[in-house]
Design a protein around this nucleic acid. Structure first.
Length: 349
DNA sequence: GACACGTGGAA
DNA sequence: TTTCCAAGTGT
């Protein structure tokens, strides 16, 4: 091929940077700043989450917590409220803890060194590199899903296994330019997001097309290698729906695990809902089955036990165990998992 | 090294 | 309707 420039040479980054200047994204909310706090927040929200989903959460979050200090001073509850609906709530818990660590031990400053930053909770190798690049202009290697897809296709390498991942990191480091690291890094991500898409890649407008092995071999659909299908577990959980008409009885979930730290309907795991109700002085009125409550990664079936209860007795007996009443009017802004929030909102109608 | 961890959108 | 997957990290 006449135009097949050596893809391992500087021609790679030169093409990516030139493409980024003309065709890349330049107007995303977190691209208007060098504030490490804002860069960091965006990178955490963008983990396994698409740009259009993140934008409204990012805007609301910054309006409420404009600075690292403001976030560190906030309650975990208020952070989870703003994260409610975004998923992967360990990100919010780590975000909050990270802010407190930085304020308490690092004078509220991020390090420019990705090695130091990656030691903080919720910040791994790729996120640390992104902060170094976009906030400090440091030369560091980002390898997220977008970059992986571009590299896997251009160089015809597999992905998924640990060996493949190491090879991709090594390859990514080799390709790093000496200058214009921000444009290069953003260019690789934008290329992966807008041109080298998982489905229907726009190879005809790709600056790397002449060197791309996957394109030459017609293997775009095979690279990166699809993840092996896994069997989805089905969870069956018996929960209580207690309401006096204007309030609902909720439980604070354990600090880790599914929906960790969020409010949810109380679970009756080792005991039946009926015995729980009896112990609490409630009367079981009826049951309702809903399935599935969530989709994809878990089938989560809730069996609702609709109870009428003596409000004051319940409140006094179990408050110390992390239960609380929530006004139905306050549902929208509460730190609730999406399926629970949808369920309770539908009840109000 | 495998698995858990949420949700919304696309095909 | 079902399946896949997206700016990954922690255990």
């Amino acid at each position: 091929m006449a135009d097949a420039w050596p893809a391992t040479g500087p021609g790679f980054s030169i093409r990516v940077i030139a493409w980024q200047r003309v065709h890349g994204r330049h107007d995303l909310p977190w691209q208007q700043t060098f504030d490490p706090y804002r860069i960091w927040l965006s990178e955490i929200m963008l983990q396994q989450t698409q740009v259009p989903t993140v934008i409204p959460y990012y805007t609301r979050f910054l309006a409420r917590f404009p600075t690292l200090a403001a976030l560190a001073e906030a309650s975990l509850e208020s952070v989870l409220e703003l994260w409610s609906g975004l998923g992967y709530y360990a990100r919010a818990r780590n975000l909050h803890r990270c802010a407190q660590i930085l304020v308490a031990e690092r004078a509220g400053r991020f390090s420019a060194d990705p090695g130091e930053t990656a030691a903080l909770p919720g910040i791994g190798r790729s996120t640390a590199a992104a902060i170094s690049v976009f906030a400090f202009g440091r030369r560091a290697t980002v390898l997220d899903g977008n970059v992986k897809r571009v590299l896997a296709r251009c160089f015809g390498v597999a992905s998924g296994a640990a060996r493949d991942e190491r090879a991709l990191w090594a390859l990514a480091e080799t390709l790093l330019p000496e200058n214009d690291i921000e444009a290069y890094t953003q260019g690789m991500m934008d290329l992966g997001a807008t041109v080298c898409r998982r489905h229907h890649p726009a190879c005809d407008v790709c600056p790397l097309q002449a060197a791309c092995i996957a394109r030459r071999q017609g293997r775009q659909a095979e690279l990166p290698s699809p993840a092996p299908r896994k069997v989805l577990p089905e969870r069956v959980s018996s929960v209580l729906l207690l309401s006096d008409g204007c309030r609902v009885f909720l439980e604070r979930r354990p600090p880790s695990g599914l929906w960790g730290g969020l409010l949810s309907l109380p679970e009756a795991l080792s005991e039946s809902a009926a015995s729980f109700a009896r112990r609490q002085g409630c009367r079981l009125l009826g049951t309702q089955a809903l399935s599935p409550m969530t989709h994809a990664f878990t089938h989560f079936r809730l069996i609702l036990q609709i109870l009428r209860c003596d409000v004051e007795v319940i409140s006094l007996q179990v408050r110390e165990h992390g239960y609380e009443w929530l006004l139905l009017d306050d549902l929208a802004g509460a730190a609730l998992p999406t399926p629970i929030k949808k369920l309770l909102l539908s009840l109000g109608r």
